[in-house]
Design a protein around this nucleic acid. Sequence first.
DNA 1: CAATGGCTTGCATACGTATTCACGTACCGG
DNA 2: CCGGTACGTGAATACGTATGCAAGCCATTG
Lengths: 341, 341
Amino acid sequence: MAERKATSFDIAAKAGVSQSTVSRALRDSPLVNPETRARVQAIARELNYQVDRTASSLRTGHTRTLALLLFEDAPEDASPINPFFLSMLGSITKACSAHDYDLLVSFQHPEEDWYARYEEAHRADGLILLGYGDYVSAHPTLQRLADSGAHWVIWGPRLSFEHGICVGSDNALGGYQATRHLLQKGRRNIAFLGCNSEQAPEFADRFSGYQKALKEARLSANDNLQVYAESFEASGASAVASLLDAGLEFDALVCASDLIAIGAMRFLQDQGIAVPDDVAIIGFDDIQAAAYCSPALTTVRQDVKRAGETMVDLLLELIENGDETSRLLEPQLIVRESCGS
Amino acid sequence: MAERKATSFDIAAKAGVSQSTVSRALRDSPLVNPETRARVQAIARELNYQVDRTASSLRTGHTRTLALLLFEDAPEDASPINPFFLSMLGSITKACSAHDYDLLVSFQHPEEDWYARYEEAHRADGLILLGYGDYVSAHPTLQRLADSGAHWVIWGPRLSFEHGICVGSDNALGGYQATRHLLQKGRRNIAFLGCNSEQAPEFADRFSGYQKALKEARLSANDNLQVYAESFEASGASAVASLLDAGLEFDALVCASDLIAIGAMRFLQDQGIAVPDDVAIIGFDDIQAAAYCSPALTTVRQDVKRAGETMVDLLLELIENGDETSRLLEPQLIVRESCGS
DNA sequence: CAATGGCTTGCATACGTATTCACGTACCGG
DNA sequence: CCGGTACGTGAATACGTATGCAAGCCATTG
């Protein structure tokens, strides 16, 4: 039976004290007599009383809640959330829980003027922005947000705003690690799949790492081996197909994402080309499928768990202490079978 | 510069009307003069005004927010969220967005008295409970919740409460579909991996579907081919190992989850047993990895997208119209390579 | 004995919005 | 010219909590 929910006044009446005292007792204020406090708390338990967080937030101005804005390029309902963001969502949720914060999740279409969501209209103490590169970071709305005095973190490359924090992977380092590993394995004709991506600006950094490794090895990079791809399987397949069609020689692929790598791997296998014997492959991200495909995919892991924790930690620091700086996370090469070990 | 946020009074002053009129105008009330409304809305835009949802919720008693309580058996921080729940989280998020609701996510340890979260202390209009079978559904707290008049949906088998809704897969049907498919392919010695699970009570229903299919085919089930397993790879591997050790003959496996199936498949392959030629395998869930392992895993898909949508739709119906009934979702057999097609 | 100070408590108010009630104006028909 | 009605608007209040301020009480001290 849905009786009216108990309020602090109900407790006050039952305990024979004022509502102020109840509020103080429940918040463990040192101002109340220990006996009174115990009595009030006992009655609160008995009545299944819960502080109304809405009212509490209105009064204090704090919510103990962070809001996650998820920017998806594909608004159509059919597609599931990008798996990388999805696992990020999971780790952020966990990180919030660990700090006894709640998380408010909502989608946002990049084209809209999401400034309207500004700190979720007072329902959150801070914002976490998650979306593909430029979609968000280059958006003029972000500047307004930065100027507004809101507390926010964004996943992506370092940006220059006076307020707000960026957390991202060191993509150049990741591309470098992958390429150097292949060089150490004796591969010499290493292609890169994922140049000039429109959707994922981070690919450009990965590419620069690849270039740096080649340069260090005094290998002249063959421009023809550096091809365009976006982050889905079909694109990886057609990228590698174009290399084959052009009759180019290559013994290894550095791919800007795991999905590209898997698509390319499948295509090569279908053509009767052996992975890793004929062509070694390294991906980027370490999505779940990377460990399950065959041969298991060597990849550059973005530590999602640590990323989520870092974003939450820094944001809370920013909220509570007012000052924090952006951070770049070190990726880790996960060696499996596809690189020929 | 963090100026004080604009309130409806600020707009009122600037528009030369009262706060009441501002409130009405912003909510498109027919009570206000169209011209006044337009003027007020223009000023609101100009001031970047956003309705304070906290205050609004306090006044109206509604939040346009649903809360998702995630019950994880493993509280240790290290492990990521179960992938099935994680994708469910994704689909629920999307479904909420489609209805213009927000989602509040929080973890809950099953042992605790989470009744305290009762409608998230007024921060949500309804609750979605997600956790492994009995952990939640058999919890005494659920009865209290049901009695309290809260609005909630739980993922799992149908339960008998006067209030609240259950949404789940028809697990018996799924087990039946998988087994019958193998029978049609001519397999006769079909084992079941995942009996007597403590963590996942839904496995029992899947097992009963398996039994039903065998019975229909007039095959006497060999009890020795029905073995215990929990939902992780190592458990699947050791389950199939026990069958081999016992020297039992089998030409197919019905597995209570994909993780069990993948673990079993890997183990068989390591032993030089061919999948699907020697042993056909069917899993359950259709997690992402199922499509990527080799051979690709035939499995019974739980349509996560539809599940999330259904839970949200029913919950909103319940909140708005007060009455709704539980629902059982039909699973779908996804035929890939591991069953020998 | 009066004054001081510490310890508890209550009163009153503010947070920002949505809504009920009452009021004023203009317009209509009789 | 008057009663009635329809329409817009404003004043006032409630939602439930947290907290500044003041006041009461008791014990201690000069």
